[in-house]
């Protein structure tokens, strides 16, 4: 399942997409994120899933543009998206940023 967390507003589109079928629940991304945007949860959208899944925490969902901006500024423009700590830490490539 592609879980899109984030929003679209007057200033643009800000989504973190998590492919829950790829996520193996390792939790490395959670530790890699300096802003604590990500968390491991039991998948409430799939009652039959047995392993935990990563999600954008409730607290950050409506402001990820700002929560993620320190990482975005620190990485080089051309490699930006793959150089993000969360994206880099995920071996199964389950995390994608839309901006």
């Amino acid at each position: 399942m592609l879980a899109n967390y984030g929003y679209k507003d007057g200033s643009g589109e800000f989504f973190i997409t998590i492919d829950t079928d790829k996520c193996d629940g390792c939790g490395k991304c959670v530790h890699s994120c300096p802003a604590k945007v990500l968390e491991m949860v039991t998948d409430e959208s799939d009652p039959f899933r047995e392993i935990p899944v990563v999600a954008v925490s409730e607290e950050h969902r409506k402001k990820i543009k700002y929560s993620c901006s320190p990482c975005k500024g620190a990485t080089c423009k051309t490699t930006q998206k793959t150089a993000l700590p969360c994206v880099k830490s995920c071996e199964p490539v389950a995390i994608v940023h839309s901006w």
């Binding site: 399942m1 592609l2 879980a3 899109n4 929003y7 507003d9 959208s45 799939d46 969902r61 409506k62």
Partner: peptide, 12 residues
Amino acid sequence: GKVSAFLMNDKC
């Protein structure tokens, strides 16, 4: 009926 993708707007 299994979800393959979703998007939610609850910001406004």
